[in-house]
Design a protein around this nucleic acid. Structure first.
Length: 174
DNA sequence: CTCGGAATCG
DNA sequence: CGATTCCGAG
């Protein structure tokens, strides 16, 4: 296998399965504040993995809690992430560091006590577009419901962009 | 394992 | 700014 690092893997997944746009469209990867192509962010990638059945063995949603997911194979997830970013030396230690930075950004949270278990803050993720697609992934039944994840994973950190910078206020109440 | 500071990069 | 790398502490 000489697939060094390109668009190999999840991005090339056949979208023509049934639901048009099962994979993340371009607009899902970028925000309004960047015309060109922005590299994928980690939480985008995690969401992408969680969306597909192919990666149920490495990462999956956790039943019981909204937006909570469990990394079954940290090394595999790290390898996939490293491939996507052309960072072969990636591992769970580094990946989890990037994940930890999300705590302050209010994108992610850690489920303490549970190993390899994190939780998405969908409350802070705003839906950019909400087309008349039904629910999203076929194997994502009912965990991600509420307000943000009802439609396609067109989750754009709109609130994050604007609110993460005001977290400096000591007396900030939500 | 998990948490974060610090230095560095693009 | 987000991510990578390194690493000491808990």
């Amino acid at each position: 296998m000489h697939r060094s690092c390109s668009l190999e893997g999840i991005l090339t997944t056949p979208v023509h399965d049934g639901i048009p746009g099962l994979a993340f469209p371009d607009w899902a990867y970028k925000t309004e504040s960047s015309p060109g192509s922005r590299q994928i962010q980690l939480w985008h990638f995690i969401l992408e993995l969680l969306q597909k059945d192919e990666f149920r063995h490495v990462i999956a949603w956790q039943q019981g809690e909204y937006g909570e997911f469990f990394i079954k194979d940290p090394d595999e997830v790290a390898r996939l992430w490293g491939r996507r970013k052309c960072k072969p030396q990636m591992n769970y230690d580094k990946l989890s560091r990037a994940l930890r930075y999300y705590y302050n950004k209010r994108i992610l949270h850690k489920t303490k006590g549970k190993r390899f278990t994190y939780k998405f803050n969908f409350s802070k993720l705003t839906v950019a577009n909400c087309p008349p697609w039904k629910v999203w992934a076929p194997s994502t039944p009912h965990l991600l419901l509420g307000s943000a994840a009802l439609c396609q994973p067109a989750l754009v950190p709109v609130a994050v962009r604007s609110e993460v910078r005001r977290k400096a206020a000591p007396s900030s109440e939500l």
